[in-house]
Design a protein around this nucleic acid. Structure first.
Lengths: 206, 206, 206, 206
DNA sequence: TATGAATGAGGTTTCATTCAT
DNA sequence: GATGAATGAAACCTCATTCAT
């Protein structure tokens, strides 16, 4: 809903305040999930944290799930923008350096907000998120594809759709495992290097 | 079975009949999770599916979680034995062929029982499973390390502990993503080939 | 009432309606315990008696015990005020008459609401009440000590802390025994006279 | 039931073993209650502690309550015999010394086995115990009455039934209070002295 | 629109007791 | 007699959601 609200919005005072409330609820949810497991999340708790009544929450989000969907969507948007800016900044660098920059950024996302990231990863596998997630990932992968060749200089294979799917899910999968089992890896440059090697080895010409 | 059951169980079945019941409860849990999400799992449903009363369930398992722990443990054991047998059968083959065989087998695990596998993956990230999981994974990785060099013939890098962690979690991560978003990949030889390439590219000497 | 309620309460009622509900739940608890043994008390019965849903009960009291604690606390407060007023009214009387008045009043408390009083006596021995009870009893005994000497006229020993503890618990103990085994004693002036004699004999100078 | 069994028993081997089992169950119950609160007591636990199956427990006692009744009865019998022996031993002593001896013994009962004593006190107020308790107490009081005069030497009032009821319940009540709130009093000679003073002051002629 | 009191289905768990073996 | 597996009513409690104010 916050996504809809954020589009086509004339800043009528009422809607302005409404958007704020909707945002506060999202922020409260994220804040809660940064410190607690998803199973402890409840609508009443969210409303309390956001400083509004439970009734108000249901004015903005028709269900608990809708709220979480909105939160995940928000994160996806932010993540997309982040990756985009990194790619832009890596314009003049080699592919290796670009991959290093991206892996570094993604590790950063997980090392702060580990809990929240894990929740998002887990929740986004639910049916209700598939569409949102798919869209986001396609945009990300399109971005990668487009820039990969630019920086390849003939040293790497041309990525297929399938290979892109494989390698992105692989890196994220490894990261998620580390986040829950080996939090120390998230701030370890060796682990970072391994992930980079995973990507580059995958595409390196024989 | 009694070996795995004996951990986390409230009461050791003394009669054959009781051992069956405890097993039935585990089977019922697996059966339920093959068709439904974990969040829908309840002790009442398990008992009903197993055809016993709720009280009987609690004679053998002190909590819902204990039941799931036992189920996961059981799966881990079975998986370990499977991987072990594949490695043994690949004794005389090249490393590439060995990796192919293992990737093929793991894809097979996920293509049958997709739901159940996803639940196990997800649940095994919980605190109560960490010990069990860690043990299982260390045994698996030890197995890999031991056999990797035997078949390497100098064409591949010597794997470090960290690299082993990275590549196994990467493959599983990619697989899990496919299982929930792209079930068709689980039976697609191209996807299988990409996973093999991911592993071999990672370790191939430059 | 809100003063007592505010301790051990999950949620402070913000509207008049809510305050009423919280009070109704306490009343329902007392009502139930007037007719039944504590072991038959259940949150479901309380909610039913109060005419609200079980969920509502848990909005205000986090557990069955919290409800009973609140009830006991309420009774203690009322009892303290009663004893205080009797002492004030006995200002100009002899110590013997004062003791008679108090014993009479306490017998009165038990002869009405016998069941409820026994439950309170029994429950207040539980760990969760010790603090509340201790505080109440110290205030009561302080009151007694203060007034005892005023009326003693040199005929009675000066009471020590320990003696006060002994004699108050003795009188209550005897009363409780009578309440459960010999209800007829609660309205028998001979029994009342014996209790008075117990107190006066204890403190009478040799 | 153990009480019945213990009467009129020919030592047929079967019955002998049966009596042992019944006794073991009682002992297990007492043992459990020495360390835990009554609310934690369960028939399954008792059977386990006694080293027999739950089915066997129900062969000897038709219900949990029957078991507790038997336990209380057993304690009452033992207590009666103890008091009786103390009185006999105090044959040649003054009343004051006799009272001291009895108070001392009763304090001793409570200072060991505090938990168990409190449970018995509490349970014996239940309906199902009233008959048993009444009988026991009447025998005790009859014993007291009979011996009181023997040792009175004219210094004390002749005790009435009612006074005997009052003073015995008073002493026990004070003791029970101390046992749950002031365990240290149970081994304090000053408290013991106060209880003696309570009894003697009550009966001392003016 | 905002509030927060109220709901109640549904979850987990216990334990006295029964009964087939 | 002894066993212990099985029962199921009933307890406690949570939380997404509704609706009167």
């Amino acid at each position: 809903m916050s996504a809809q609200l954020s589009v086509n919005m004339r800043k009528m005072p009422k809607q302005e305040r409404a958007r704020e409330t909707a945002g506060d609820l999202l922020t409260a949810t994220a804040q809660f999930l940064r410190r607690n497991h998803y199973s402890k999340l409840s609508t009443n708790k969210i409303a309390e944290l956001a400083g509004v009544s439970i009734g108000t929450l249901y004015q903005y989000y028709p269900s608990k799930e809708a709220l979480v969907v909105a939160l995940v969507r928000q994160q996806f948007e932010a993540d997309f923008r982040l990756v985009q800016s990194i790619i832009e900044e890596s314009e003049s660098l080699s592919l290796k350096e670009g991959v290093q920059n991206i892996v570094h950024a993604v590790l950063g996302m997980f090392s702060e907000q580990t809990q929240l990231r894990l929740v998002i990863y887990e929740q986004s596998r639910k049916l209700s998120f598939l569409q949102t997630k798919e869209t986001f990932q396609q945009r990300i992968r399109a971005l990668f594809l487009e820039n990969f060749e630019k920086h390849s200089r003939g040293e790497y294979e041309k990525p297929s759709e399938l290979s892109m799917y494989t390698v992105t899910t692989a890196v994220i999968g490894s990261l998620v495992a580390a986040a829950s089992e080996r939090p120390e890896y998230l701030v370890c440059s060796h682990f970072e290097a391994e992930l980079v090697r995973l990507v580059l080895g995958y595409y390196r010409k024989i």
